[in-house]
Design a protein around this nucleic acid. Sequence first.
DNA 1: TGCTCGAGTGTGAGCGGTCACAATTGTGCC
DNA 2: GGCACAATTGTGACCGCTCACACTCGAGCA
Lengths: 335, 335
Amino acid sequence: MSNGRAPSIRDVARLAGVSHQTVSRVLNNHPSIRDSTKARVLEVIEELQYRPNRAARALSRGRSRTIGVLSASSAEYGPASSIAAIQDAARNAGYFVNTANLDRRDPSSITAAVNHLMSQSVEGIVVIAPQVRVFNALKLLSIDVPYVTLQSTGSLDTNALSVDQIAGARLATRHLIDLGHRDIYHLAGPQDWIEAEARMHGFLEEMGARDVPTTAPILGDWTAEFGYHAGRELLQVRDFTAIFSSNDQMALGLIHAIREAGLDVPRDVSIVGFDDIPEAAHFWPPLTTVRQDFSELGRRSVALLLSQINETTPDNPGSIIPELIVRGSTSRPAF
Amino acid sequence: MSNGRAPSIRDVARLAGVSHQTVSRVLNNHPSIRDSTKARVLEVIEELQYRPNRAARALSRGRSRTIGVLSASSAEYGPASSIAAIQDAARNAGYFVNTANLDRRDPSSITAAVNHLMSQSVEGIVVIAPQVRVFNALKLLSIDVPYVTLQSTGSLDTNALSVDQIAGARLATRHLIDLGHRDIYHLAGPQDWIEAEARMHGFLEEMGARDVPTTAPILGDWTAEFGYHAGRELLQVRDFTAIFSSNDQMALGLIHAIREAGLDVPRDVSIVGFDDIPEAAHFWPPLTTVRQDFSELGRRSVALLLSQINETTPDNPGSIIPELIVRGSTSRPAF
DNA sequence: TGCTCGAGTGTGAGCGGTCACAATTGTGCC
DNA sequence: GGCACAATTGTGACCGCTCACACTCGAGCA
């Protein structure tokens, strides 16, 4: 009993007067077990406060029932929401989740993080680190477990899943054009990020489709701080009436810079963001932006990954279409 | 070789012409191993792409080298930053991290989450769910592993670690009083949250110490949305010149409401927030707030937890003192 | 009655590591 | 050369579970 060790399947067996294998059968819901036996075993389990030892199970089964998450910048709203959803979805499916974060300054951390996950013998990996170099590293490492990525690499990956960033960016751009804007800048995310590139593409496509001339997008780093500085730079020129920012944080920085220069949003400049973080509705002015459902993305990624692990067909293919949320930061140009 | 199974310690041993135990010694950096032997083994390990099986190791050692994180609202900035830091710190210490999220609507999820962690045989738990009911549940469950909490329960917990919320709140309040404000409201967080309560206490203490009369704090839910509605309510009365909000998001909502009513921040109302989220510097006006170092908190919590697990003495006791960051949202009252 | 068959249960061998202990080899010194 | 002793390596059991297979027993049927 209180010999220091946690009770094992054999302790339960002894007390219930059955074999260890019978206990194992009860634990795994084996069909052919007499109800009375099952009840007795369950009783002892309860009495002993028995908990199956996961390591032992993983070892003998050869499956860890764990999936890994490879994530960059997991403190940001989008990734964090997705991770939370992934964890819930995985738990519901009986899987455990292990997260490894990438240090964005250290390229070798990709290998380290993957090794970390592999040494956990994860059965699959969800990648929320939508940077080209991460994908390249993943290919080189020739991982022997399936993995899905939360962002399409643009090529026709069967294991990619994403909010249709291009469609979202076109929605935002179309909105500005429809309002009458012609001189529109795009503040993009870092070059290296898949979704930054996708949004930039969407922007350029829509501008092209409507025959609006464009200037080269500015490459930012997602932070409000960058948006602010970019805004100050842009105001030196002031040959634009609207800016489409690749995320809400940079949009916030832009607005700050514009305000500070004594101008008004949206009267002088219209701003559209991307993501619809919960705060966006309370920016001043409330931000017009493109909403993407990070939680749904997380849930679907788990479904897709598990279907690959278990070699079943996934039930929800296709990408998620984001939605334009019009608020106060956009209006017709002054004239 | 390619018999489907991953190579084991014995495969390595065979190829290197040594015993499995020698391989094990190499893996664990045992001191008395001849350099030449070690080199040979490492060579084979490399050749075979051998990775130790964690489940087997955990089983035979009886230790999982895993710590659990119990977290509520892990998508928010503060918790998410701490979690990221915890993961890094744990990884550096050779530990794995497993996160379980609480569903805030379902009280029974506490038990479920703890069971989830325990079934992983975690060696310790970091609790980032600073709600009274979580602590109560934890006590009832009589967990047999050490755990630390990222927020002090107010009582003298040896296993609590925290930013000194009271000191932070006093800093914020003092700042407002020093500016000349006397009619100051406090928009608090949810009653149930330890840190909300601590900040409220700090506010009341400082007000008391300076003989400034106070009104009852308003209990919010941390969201910008709530701050906005609270702001609209408050403006019906308008018998205040400053508001101390228990976090930055609610402060943002307040500002929104105040602006919408045609008033100015800080001219008509000064606002102080709490947390210093990265966006706070770019609110309009930039938010005066109290900065707390979530990453440091995460790192220290791991250090504390590991010291409990390994029964060593922790090296960095005491709480972290937050810092007041003065920006544009506060000024002397109109008169 | 004797046989087959399947439901229910038991037996023993792994899974891939670590641990305790035994065995072997090497070194210094008389 | 022979011995004590340390350095290095090997042997077998065991961690807690699942797997493959064997066994028992009663029902159904010729």
